Amino acid sequence: MHDMTQNYDWSFPIPVLFGPGRLAELGGICAGRGVKHPLIVTDRASRDLPFVQEAQAAVAKAGLTSAVFSDVSPNPTDHDAKTGLQVYLDGGHDAVIALGGGSGMDAGKAISLLAGAPERGLWIFDYDTDVDESLTAADFPPLICIPTTAGTGAETESTAMVTDTQAYIKRCIWHPTHKPMAAILDPAVTVGLPRNLTAWTGIDAMVHAIEAYSVPDFHPMCDGMALEGLKLVYRWLPEAIESPGSLQARGGMLTGSCMAGVAFLKGLGLVHSISHMVGAEYNTQHGLTNAVILPVVLRYNAPMISAQVGPMSEAMGLETRDFEGFYAAVCARLDACDIPRSLADLGVEESAVERLAEKAHGDAATGTNPRPATPADIAVLIREALAGAR
């Protein structure tokens, strides 16, 4: 077992600085790339937390200046991104530091994408549209990602989920040439995360690993990341919840989350496509929503993931290798994390089922689910999750 209280530097898939206290190196990273005035992007709930001040102090120590943009919703919207872009342009900023959980990270990445083509709007970066090949890496500002939760796992890519406030759906945005110049994984930053958010974001990472590994495609690099990520998250989440000051547990969670995030370059599944639309309409916490939906999707996918269940069970250290044992272990972990048993507990209404199902069917994650699903199939799953997901 590796010592998660030590510092490590990784070069794959981007430069990653891991270790307690690495946030203090932020200013040096910026200065090394010629950055002078970065915009730190986080969410409203994080604005006054210590890591924001620590980030600004690290930048100032390198002789640089910074500002903070935090007008970001729990599920970032196109309006948030446009407002942030204006702050970026008006402030004369030359880089974006995306600091936070999924909200701050997605908003920061959306702003950095917009800054690459500010006059053309956010949706030219929609994952489901043709890539604009006229844009190159040089068009985008330097981007540094610093996760403050062990769940999103999106710190190594420019991909971001943003709510389209006209259609009330979540869209995935990205550009293949835009990559973070570095990610900082500092376990000490996550020590103050409340018990419920530790659990919800941790389950989010577990879902990333399970869904990515279940995608029926040959991608051994992502599969390896998914299995090791699942192993770390399943091993360390209980300790991170019960012993929140454990840097070993927090480090294991950050590492597992990052690996699971790399794995879902392979794709995701119906848990995410449904969760995206629930979050867009009801502004629910993403990891919590994923956790509630997971059991019904596992049951639906069971006939198609028999080959994947064995390796995932082994990664989790289970004695059995069959679906029943795997499913029982997943549900037991959800119970231990006090995950609600129904989407109704999150405020989702029966009247929204058909609408949510239609939108989820159009989500990119539905296309990589191991078992095909029609809007009617998805509506059945949502109703199951409303009545009682497990």
Rank of each mutant, 00 (worst) to 15 (best):
V189R: 02
V278E: 00
G325E: 08
L49M: 09
A31V: 01
S306V: 14
P20G: 09
A260W: 05
A385S: 07
D71T: 08
P76A: 04
A365G: 13
A160E: 13
L89Y: 00
H178I: 01
N369E: 04
T136N: 15
A183Y: 00
I339H: 06
M277H: 10
P220E: 04
Y168C: 14
E281A: 15
G19S: 10
H286S: 01
P38H: 01
A154W: 03
L39W: 04
L237Y: 03
D80H: 06
V189M: 01
A150I: 11
G256I: 05
V162G: 03
V207R: 00
W10Q: 10
G116L: 08
L318V: 07
S112Q: 11
D128L: 11
Q285T: 13
G91E: 01
N196W: 13
L268G: 00
G245M: 13
N75T: 12
F12P: 15
T190H: 09
S66G: 04
R235N: 14
R47K: 14
T156L: 11
E349N: 10
G104W: 07
C222D: 13
A357F: 01
I144P: 10
A365D: 15
D128N: 11
L270F: 00
M181F: 09
F326K: 11
W10I: 12
A98Q: 10
G116D: 11
G91S: 02
E133H: 13
A379D: 03
C331H: 10
A209I: 12
V87K: 07
P370C: 01
D9V: 13
I378P: 03
Q308V: 07
E239K: 10
D322P: 11
Y8T: 04
D338V: 09
V41R: 00
M259K: 15
D78K: 08
Y213F: 14
T129L: 13
R44Q: 14
S158T: 03
G252L: 04
M206Y: 00
F264N: 06
A182V: 09
R250K: 04
A107Y: 03
S214V: 09
G104S: 11
L185F: 05
A249P: 02
L49S: 10
A67H: 12
L343S: 09
E354Q: 14
D90V: 12
P74V: 00
D204K: 08
T5H: 02
L288T: 02
F51R: 01
D132I: 12
D322A: 08
P180Y: 03
A117D: 07
G92P: 06
Y300V: 00
A365K: 13
